[in-house]
Amino acid sequence: MYPDKFEYFTPDNIEGLEELLDKYKDDSKILAGGHSLIPLLKLRLTSIPYIIDISNIKDLSFVDCNNALEIGPMVRTGEVASNKIIGDKCKLLADAASKIADPQVRNMGTVGGDVCEADPRNDLPAVMLALNAEFEVTNSKEKRTVKAEDFFKDAYTTALESNDILTRIVIKNTENYYGKYYKYTTLSSDFAVFAIAINMSLNNNKTVKDIGIGLTNLNSTAVKPVEVENYLKNKKIDDKVAGEAFDLLLKSCDIEDDINGTAKNKEKILKNIFINGLKEIYEVL
């Protein structure tokens, strides 16, 4: 790869990272696993004078579970897919991570990078929306919490400022939930043509207690179809309910003809997957 010239830093603590970000501001960027950033540098689609590799910062790499599941941004997506705690507490996240690209990409790419890149085709933003995750964001002046639904602004655009660091991902909706990531691809690309993340829990009377949904690559950024979630709450899921939920779901989508196929064809497949997915999860619970 032949990117433009850049200077490369590897701080080993968060303070060092904050200092560098404050110093170089918009001319700098965090490098986590590099599997979104490096392709851009390589194709010279972007040019970044100061690159700050955060892989030496141990405080960014952890998986804990006390009241909630807490994950450091530097945890590789391969680890997310195989980690025992995550597998126990959050099937949806483990499932989605296992469906990212291939082992090489998952061995490098990180959960934080996947989220912060906010590529509309990336899998984890929709998952975070379905999980109602919260992001701890840190910079040299403050620490704040941003909800997933306030985080994804547009394609490749998040609520992060140039000196912000994603330092922790918090997932509270774990007990009694079951979820799965339905990802549709082409034969040759690992990226989703579209995907649906669903996380669900039931009341004793078999009605939906809580449901979180996230959509990948069905709009300019990952979206959370709140109307659909609200509609499904306190209902039993059958073909009719699922069908009506799908009609609502389409309101959150902006499906276009593209290289993967016509909008019509995509919508047909999407409907099938959404309805079967809802029913599958409902039945497991």
């Binding site: 339905y182 990802k183 549709y184 691809t185 034969l187 043509v193 993967n260 995509k266 047909k268």
Partner: peptide, 11 residues
């Protein structure tokens, strides 16, 4: 042939 619906590509 390039038809998205062929060979069910839901992972």
């Amino acid at each position: 042939i390039d038809d998205l619906s062929l060979f069910n590509k839901c992972m």
